[in-house]
Write a protein that binds this DNA or RNA. Sequence first.
DNA 1: GCGAGTTCATATAA
DNA 2: CTTATATGAACTCG
Length: 711
Amino acid sequence: MGEKMKCAPPLSKETGVLDVKPLRTLSPMFPASLGLNAVSPPASWPFVFVTPHGSFTSGNEVLFPSNFCSLYPSFCPNGMDKKSIKSSQVKKTNGSVHDGAGKNGNGPSHDTVLAPCPLRAMPVITVLSDNDEDLLLNDGLSTSDVKIEQPVPLGSCPVGGGEIEGSDMKKPKRKRFKKAQDPELMMLPSSSYDARESVEAILMTFDALRRRLLQLEEVKDVNKRSVTKAGTIMMDHDLRANNVKRIGHVPGIEVGDLFYFRIEMCLVGLHAQSVSGIDYMTARFGDEDDPVAVAVVSAGGYENDDEDADVLIYTGQGGSGKNDKKQIDDQKLERGNLALERSLHRGNEIRVIRTAKDVSSPGSKIYIYDGLYKINKSWVEKAKSGFNVFKYKLVREPGQPDGIVTWKMIERWRKDPSLRGKVILPDMSSGDEKLPVCLVNDVDDEKGPSHFTYTTKLHVSSSISKTLHGCMCHNVCLPGDANCSCVLLNGGDLPYTSNGLLVSHKPLIYECGTSCQCTPSCRNRLTQNGITHRFEVFRTKDRGWGLRSWDPIRAGAFICEYTGEVIDKGREDEDGENEYIFQPTNTDDNAFSWNYIPELLGEPSHPDSSDTIKPLQIIISAKNMGNISRFMNHSCSPNVFWQAVQRDNGDEGYPHIVFFAIRHIPPMTELTYDYGPCGDEIVKEDVPNSDRSRRPKKCLCKSPKCRGVFR
DNA sequence: GCGAGTTCATATAA
DNA sequence: CTTATATGAACTCG
C-alpha cells in the first residue's frame, strides 16, 4: 500500500531541534511477539526473528544483514564479527538430567547472543516428554511434573542469511508431528515462561493474520476462508508451538485459556486434530505400544449443565453418515474410541476442552481449556437412532485452577446479580454506561475508592481546534469505498472488522464523527458507542483497585476509553500527587508487533515505526472525573494496549485514547496495560517539580519480564 | 432469528 | 505419498 505518513519528525519543545529518540531495547508493550522482544527489525529485514532463548544448535552460523548491527548496536556485542555471529553453543545432552526450570543458570541467560534467523526457521518451543518416557508413563502416568521445553533444531535455518520471500514463495514443506522419543529433540531445558511467551506470540500472530485476511476479503470478492488461510500460513511457516504430542500438561497453556477456532488449539499443541474431537497418540508402556487419548474437545456445550462441573460424559466417534450428523451405523472400537478405551486402562491424564456459546457472535463457539481429566468408566449405549455409541465418563483431576466453573458461576450471576455477593455498588456509572459496572471487594474492608465523578466523556479544553473531517456516506461506511473520506484517512481500509475487532494497531485511527453523514450504526464508530462487556471494579490483594470483566474478551476487541479531563502540560500535579494521569509514551514501537506480519501475505513491510509517529501532546487526568479505565493497573506483561483515535476534533495531538485487548482474555482476569517505561532521564537525573506526579513506582506485576518500576 | 443443509476446507493416522 | 476420517467454519435457505 502506498499510504504516506504525514508526520514530520518531532520537534523538541524546549529547543525546537529535531528530537530523535534513541532506539530502546525495552519492550513496554508486548513481551515477545515472536521473539521480537528486544528490537523491532528494520523494514529491510522483515524476516528476522529472534528466539526467546537465543540458543541455536552448534554449527549453525546465522548471518546478520549488512545494516543490522548499525541499526541495532545493542544486538551485536563487541568483539563479534558484524556479519557472522556464531550463536552460543547448545549442548546436546542425551539422557542427562535437567532440573527443567532454567532459572538455576541452566537455561540460556539474557546475556546470550540473540541471533536472528529467517522466519521459516523460527525456532518454536517444542515440548518433549523426558527421554525416559517409558519410566514416566509407568510412574504415575503423568508428565505434568516434567517440563522440558526446547527449541527445535534449526535444521532448515539457511546458512548465509535469509532470502526474503515474496508473494511468489513456494509452499514450504510442512513439518510433521515429531515423535517424542526422537533423540534429536533432547536438548537443554528453558523456563516455562518462554513457553507461555511462545504460545501467546503464536496466537497473536495467527489472529492478526486472520483479521487482516478478513479485512481483505471484504473488499475483494474472494472465498471467505480467513480462518483456514491464516491457519495454513502459520502451519506452512512452522509458526507453531509444542509440535510434539504429549500426555498431560502442555507448556505455555494454562487452565482457562480461550480459543475461538479449532486451528488455534492445533497451532499451540493443545489438540492436534482440526476437526475430530479426540486427539490420541501411540505411547509406550513397558514393552507394549498402546494408543491412548491425549485430549478431547467436548462440543456439546452446556447440555449437562446441572451436572457436576468436574464430570464429563463424552460420546465416542464414528457411525455417522457422510454429510449428516445422524447415526447410520454402530460405532466401532477403533481410532479415538479405541484410544479412549486404552486410556481407561492406562489411567493417563486427558486434556479436556469444553465449549461455550459466544454470545457476542451468535452461531460461533468459544473453546475453553478445562485442565486434566481421567477416564473413570466406559459403556456402550443405544442412541436415539437405535445404533450403539460408546460413552466415557471423565473426571477432573483435583487441585487444578478453576476453568469452566468460572463460566458457569458468571452465568448464574448474570441471571441474578445478587448472587455475585460482596457488591459495594451495583453500578458505579449510575446508568451512564450501557452495562452496569459493579464495585466489589472480596478481599478486605475497604468500602471503595476515594470520591470521583463518573464520566463517559473526554472533557476537552476549549482551546483545542475543532476543525472536523467528515464523510458523505449515506447509510454506513463500507470497506474499500474510495469515495469515503474516512476510509481514505485510514489508509484505504476500515480499521475494524465487521464484528468490531481492531485489525491493526496504528499511530492514529480516524473514526467517523459528528460531521460524518453516516448513521450511528456505522462500524467506523466503534469506540464512541460505549462499552460492550460487563465489567467489575474489584479490590486486588496488593495493588488497590483493579478492573476485570465477566465476559470473555477477544483479541482486538474494544474495551473502554480513557475518559477524564484533558489538562495542560505542567499542570499534572497542580493539586498534589496524581496517580490518575494518562500520558502517551512515544517509545512503544513494540505495540506494532501486535500487527500481522505483512510478508506472510506477500505485502511489503509497513513503515510504522517510532520515527514516523508524531508524539501526542495530550495528557488526561482522571483524578476528579473518569471511568473504569482509571482503575486499570500497570503490568509489564499486559493484556491490553492503548490506541489513539481521532473522532470529534481536528487536532491530531489531542485524540481519544481507547483500549483494546492484546489477546483473548478469560472472564475474571485482571485487565492491565503498560503505563510506559520510566524514562532514563527521570530515573537518573533529579526529578523536576513538574514531573513529581510521574515519579517511578515500584512495580508489583510479578511478570517474569517485570522492569521493576513504572511511572 | 434459528436450525438444517451445503460447500469447501484441513491435520493427522494409517 | 495417498487416502480416509472427523463434534470445523462460513454460508444459504426456509
